[in-house]
Design a protein around this nucleic acid. Sequence first.
DNA 1: GCCCAGGTGAAGC
DNA 2: GCTTCACATGGG
Length: 286
Amino acid sequence: MPGNALKILVADYDLATTLASGQAFRWQPGAGVWTGVIHRHWVQLHGVPGGIEATTAGPVTDWSWLTHYLQTDLDLPTVLASFPADEPLRAAVQHARGLRLLRQDPWECLASFILSSTKQIVQIQQIVALVAERYGEPLAVPNGHSPTHAFPSAERLAALSEADLRDCKMGFRAPYLLAAARAVAGGKLDLERLRGVELAEAREALITLPGVGPKIADCVLLFAYDFPQAFPVDVWVMKALRRLYFPRRARSPARLQRFITTYFGPHSGYAQQYLFHYMRTHPNPV
DNA sequence: GCCCAGGTGAAGC
DNA sequence: GCTTCACATGGG
């Protein structure tokens, strides 16, 4: 029987921390409820004892889009057990146990992170909301809720001008987003193909886009694909590495990179997310 | 006013 | 290889 509500049984899932953790930008907190958009679905989520309750605008028969996005089948204890047993990671995990990685749509994730450079998370949310409101297709929403839009397709954005995008307050990122939209819409960059290639090859393919460097590429590979060893290094993660792992003397970028790829194990991307969250919420040394 | 934000590319050495 | 700078915009 198709319904518009579902309870997902899952342990070790901190919904609020996950949705606010700066990997996805379309979630708005309410009174214990998170409202957002996944693909073409308006959805409300709230964490309850033993799991997550979801409500949609209309009847749903196949909920796999939701469970896949939330990654509720992932066994978190296995991931955590794969981390090196050091003090920084122990503290970071203890501080936010239940923090998860989502599995987003590659195009939306790529576009969002192109917009992310030297922006605070709240500002990225504002820009993404503006782009969706202006150029995304309207979605079905329950009575009493404000109108919501899907994130616009690459084809839709590719048809715009740079000025249209600059009007969405994205500044110097506008030509980068436009170039990415045109590369994807024109078939020059096949985001689906990246699902089946090695991490290094997928990274290279993304970095060919102007405005996409190693950090943004790794965000997309970690948050939208199945690359558990993608390890985006932003200002916060760099602070974590310097302060928690190399407090005495600075390491060259090459040495740091080698440390990242050898030290954190098969789920290093997850370790990165815990370190990121820990530094963001503990910006000052204890 | 000032500094900073889930960076990147270009120019300089 | 590494360092410095510009690039828009808004929050603290």
